[in-house]
Simulated scan of single mutants.
Amino acid sequence: MNHAPHLWLALSPHGFGHAAMTAPVVAELRRRLPGLQLTIQTTISRPFLDSRYRDFTLVPDIADFGFRMLSSVAIDLESSAAGYITLHRDFDRLMDAEAARLAAARPDLVLSNVAYVPLAAAGRAGIPAVALSSLNWADMVAHYLGDRPDMAPVLAQIRAAYGSARAFLRCIPAQTMTLPNVIDIGPIAAPGRNRRDQIAAPGEKVGLVAFGGIDHPLALEAWPSLPGWRWFLGGGQVPDRPDMAPWQASGLTFSDLVASVDVVVTKPGYGTFTEAGMVGTPVLYVARPDWPECPHLDNWLQAHTQALSISAESLIDGSLEMLLRKLFCLPKQPVAVPTGVDQAVDFLVPTLGACERS
């Protein structure tokens, strides 16, 4: 008997990038499988999910947390280590509970970006599972916390969780991975449309400041006022200034806003980098040399748009105008194409599509 396929999507709540990255894949899945049911498991805010997904059931509870952060670029290592020790203290009982939840929901496939607990639970419940991301928490935790003796059993369980998936679809640009089931695919994003005429007056310059869903300690009140410039802010408190407004005031989707501004000011992150690199929007980004993804993200971005690595201090110390001039003098680059969307969907459809034929 035929039934509509049911996708359980588990999204890491570590910023907005995991949710943003997966949205175009789900949109293409729904185009090919119009009856697809979608359940999203995450603690990312409903308004953000509504801006990227439609018609879904939300399960606002997920054990994975990524890292505990002090800011958008600073990891709280002690709190993160303690969080992992607590999470794995009774991992078997956690797996039983999560497997029971999945068994009750009866999805046909678990897709995770890139929470590992739902992958392990799917394996225990006998449900097919696939991971999709540009990073994984096994290699991330090993990089930052792997020298701590009490993390060895934790890392073993994380690696086993990822290894239980049918595949890990690694979308470039991506960190180097040591997992056994990695399949490389192209970049994933939903490039926006340039709707500049709706947000900028003739001759006006417009920028977007966005640090990816995790608070960044940037003193926006000290942001220099540049003649002819106006700024949309992607998060945090908006100073009472005529040249600043929350990004939602643009009336555009976030992707369209990225495609419509003169510059994006951000930190290294898959979603914003790929969306900018697919439409050619110049990017000023705060360097993050300790983050394992960064060399790969940086090189990819610089190959697809004008991009300049800067310090956070240079945004508010009077250097911004000079940095913008330097950025705009860089040679333009050929934009990227989101080939990874179709590659990911080609891999996922046979499992979900089988439901319609069963």
Rank of each mutant, 00 (worst) to 15 (best):
R195E: 15
R195Y: 05
R195Q: 14
R195N: 11
R195V: 08
R196T: 13
R196V: 06
R196S: 15
D197Y: 04
D197N: 08
Q198A: 12
Q198C: 04
Q198M: 08
Q198D: 10
Q198P: 00
Q198E: 14
I199F: 06
I199W: 05
A200E: 09
A201L: 07
P202L: 08
P202G: 13
G203P: 12
G203Q: 09
G203F: 09
G203D: 06
G203T: 03
G203W: 11
E204Q: 15
E204C: 13
K205L: 15
V206H: 02
V206L: 10
G207E: 05
G207K: 11
G207N: 06
L208V: 10
L208W: 07
V209R: 13
A210E: 11
A210I: 15
A210N: 15
F211I: 03
F211H: 10
F211V: 03
F211S: 09
G212P: 00
G212K: 11
G212T: 05
G213L: 04
I214A: 10
I214V: 10
D215G: 14
D215E: 15
D215L: 15
D215C: 12
D215Q: 14
H216W: 05
H216N: 09
P217I: 02
L218D: 15
L218I: 08
A219M: 05
A219V: 08
A219D: 14
L220P: 00
L220E: 07
L220G: 02
E221W: 04
E221F: 01
E221K: 09
A222T: 13
A222K: 14
W223T: 02
W223K: 04
W223D: 03
P224G: 07
S225H: 12
S225K: 13
S225Y: 04
L226K: 01
L226R: 00
L226N: 00
L226M: 06
P227G: 08
P227S: 13
G228M: 12
G228Y: 02
W229G: 02
W229Y: 07
W229A: 05
W229V: 10
W229S: 03
R230E: 06
R230D: 04
W231E: 04
F232H: 04
L233M: 11
L233F: 08
L233D: 07
G234E: 15
G234K: 13
G235R: 02
G235M: 03
G235T: 07
G235E: 11
G235C: 07
G236P: 00
G236I: 11
Q237H: 12
V238E: 03
V238R: 13
V238M: 04
P239L: 08
P239S: 05
P239V: 14
P242R: 13
P242A: 10
P242K: 12
D243A: 14
D243C: 13
M244Y: 07
A245W: 05
A245C: 09
A245D: 01
A245L: 08
A245P: 10
W247M: 12
W247P: 00
Q248F: 10
Q248P: 09
Q248E: 09
Q248G: 09
Q248V: 15
A249L: 11
A249R: 15
